[in-house]
Amino acid sequence: MKTVKAFIERGSDGTYGVYIDLEDNTLNYGIHGEGKSAKEALEDFKASYQQMKAFYNELGKKFVEAEFNYYYDLPSFLSYYSNILSLAGLERLTGINQGQLSHYATGYRKPSKKTVEKIEQKLHKFAEDIQQIAFI
């Protein structure tokens, strides 16, 4: 099974899209997903994958199976995980003000590359810490 990058991004119209890396020629097909939320777009993307698989099967063509590594823009990440990670929690984790995070989530403001890297590093460190947890 091949591993392919898929990008989740918020569009200027407020909708979300998921698409595969157009520079990657691993797959012999293209798929994408759309939705009013990151979650909806991701579900549509996964449905498109299954539909394409069925279509290739119908035609008797070889279908390249794939796993996807998802890459989020910051508004899409904040939208997708908003029911798990509050802005208050993210502020405590990253040191970035809730108001600023809210502006990033809504697309009102765009974070600098340095800010995106800071958030990503803090989230990865938090994930490492969580991974160490063991209950007795």
Rank of each mutant, 00 (worst) to 15 (best):
3 T>M: 10
4 V>Q: 04
4 V>N: 03
5 K>W: 11
6 A>Y: 08
6 A>V: 09
8 I>M: 12
9 E>A: 07
10 R>T: 02
16 Y>T: 00
19 Y>H: 12
22 L>T: 14
22 L>M: 08
23 E>S: 10
28 N>P: 11
29 Y>Q: 05
32 H>K: 08
32 H>R: 13
34 E>V: 06
34 E>W: 12
35 G>L: 13
35 G>V: 07
37 S>C: 04
40 E>I: 08
42 L>Y: 13
44 D>W: 08
45 F>E: 04
48 S>I: 09
49 Y>M: 07
50 Q>D: 10
50 Q>G: 00
51 Q>I: 10
54 A>K: 14
55 F>M: 01
55 F>P: 01
57 N>I: 12
58 E>D: 15
62 K>P: 09
64 V>S: 05
66 A>I: 07
68 F>I: 01
70 Y>R: 01
71 Y>V: 07
72 Y>D: 06
72 Y>T: 00
73 D>W: 10
73 D>V: 02
76 S>D: 06
77 F>N: 00
77 F>Y: 15
77 F>Q: 08
78 L>V: 03
80 Y>P: 01
80 Y>V: 01
80 Y>S: 02
83 N>H: 14
84 I>Y: 12
85 L>W: 07
86 S>M: 09
87 L>F: 13
89 G>Q: 10
89 G>Y: 13
89 G>D: 14
91 E>V: 00
91 E>L: 00
91 E>K: 08
91 E>C: 01
95 G>T: 01
96 I>W: 02
96 I>H: 04
96 I>R: 04
97 N>E: 12
98 Q>D: 09
98 Q>K: 15
100 Q>N: 02
102 S>K: 14
103 H>W: 06
104 Y>S: 00
104 Y>W: 05
105 A>S: 08
107 G>T: 09
107 G>S: 03
108 Y>S: 11
110 K>T: 13
111 P>F: 03
111 P>I: 03
113 K>P: 07
115 T>R: 11
115 T>W: 06
116 V>M: 13
117 E>V: 00
117 E>M: 04
117 E>L: 05
118 K>R: 14
120 E>Y: 04
121 Q>P: 03
121 Q>E: 15
121 Q>R: 14
122 K>Y: 07
123 L>S: 00
124 H>E: 11
125 K>L: 14
126 F>Q: 07
127 A>F: 10
127 A>T: 15
128 E>C: 07
128 E>M: 13
129 D>W: 10
130 I>D: 12
133 I>G: 06
133 I>W: 12
136 I>E: 15
